[in-house]
Design a protein around this nucleic acid. Structure first.
Lengths: 209, 209
DNA sequence: CTGCATCCGCCTCGATACTG
DNA sequence: CAGTATCGAGGCGGATGCAG
């Protein structure tokens, strides 16, 4: 086990989760518990030996537990959510259009949604939005000054968006608007047009940085 | 240049700054502009060839610029501050006591300070604190609902702490209190005892999570 | 002396094959 | 399905070289 041997919070964090692929494994487990095969399928490019080694290492560090063939984050592991969110936001900000050969999963957009949503941007807002991405359904609920995202439909969505996964992820980049995506036929929006605008506000996509 | 080839904000971020040592270079530059030799001295364990390569790579990505022998972060580079802060907080939370052979720099504690300080924890607070760590002096100012940290003395500090760098960093860990450090003779506090308590509150070190 | 570039041994990574 | 074993390629770490 290689270490930076520096007495510093960042170095300690990178000693634990700074190796290649490790934070991407955490990204998958932040969505929910997963089986080995599912992880492998949603981490295209990662070798099976590395996944096994990383899971073992993360278990030993108390970041992941395995019960009944299901890997899940411990509380300490979920504590990485904020760091993963910060990095995701930073990476999204200058995401280019997808190159060919680039893999994509619908739920990666869900991670982006979680990273970007901040209910404090629209005080007092109470509503839900639904997203149909490829064959999956996600929701964003803003209630009580907090935003929560998850799999599955929203309860009474005031807006429903339908799109493909790459377009969905790309909306997180500043320079690709839902308006453009609609014009290009990659995205449709149903429901209250004003709700769509409020949703964009919650996500910080109104251009007011 | 190796890439995860995943259309996802986190993967894009890790493509840019996920390699070994890269975020530690950013950590140094978040403190302020530095020369090559200073960076090398404050990144013990990093090979000189790797530092040169990382700086070149970061320049090419628009994260770092070099002018007049001084490396500094671009605006995009400074955007990594939030992610570095999140990781630092997570790493600090379970930092053990320093092992022998572990390097430490006084300004790493400054990074920890920046990561932990949140003025919203004590609404309306207006004061400054000064920290003497090894041979360096830092300050934390809470004013107008915002906390700022930096090198150099505070203007009119209500509390002054004197300690060594390892103790200073370690205070960021939950299970090592200033009280304990004082009892062990590693730390002295001058000024208003209540100010010290308010400072701990701002840093989230009061035990109320 | 600073600011790198080059070289080399080693270990990690990535792909494939194999096992329970 | 859930991993383990193997092996070539390449990134990493340390030492050294070299120009300004």
């Amino acid at each position: 086990m290689r270490s930076y041997r520096q007495y510093c919070g960042l170095a300690a964090a990178l000693d634990a989760v700074g190796e290649r692929w490790t934070l991407l494994v955490v990204r998958e487990l932040l969505i929910g518990p997963r089986r080995y095969g599912e992880l492998l399928a949603d981490l295209p490019g990662m070798g099976t030996n590395l996944l096994a080694e990383r899971l073992k290492s993360l278990s030993h560090l108390g970041i992941v537990t395995k019960d009944d063939q299901l890997y899940r984050l411990t509380e300490r592991g979920r504590g990485l959510g904020a760091a993963v969110g910060s990095l995701t936001r930073w990476g999204l900000a200058e995401l280019d259009e997808p190159e060919s050969g680039t893999a994509c999963r619908a739920h990666w957009g869900l991670g982006g949604l979680r990273a970007m949503a901040d209910a404090r941007r629209v005080p007092g807002l109470e509503e839900s939005y639904e997203f149909h991405v490829d064959d999956e359904v996600f929701h964003l609920r803003v209630s009580g000054g907090a935003a929560t995202v998850g799999r599955g439909p929203a309860e009474r969505p005031t807006m429903t968006m339908t799109t493909d996964s790459k377009t969905f992820v790309r909306l997180g980049s500043g320079d690709y608007s839902a308006r453009t995506a609609q014009a290009e036929g990659r995205l449709t929006i149903e429901g209250d047009p004003q709700a769509a605008r409020r949703c964009a506000l919650v996500l910080g996509l109104d251009g007011s940085a």
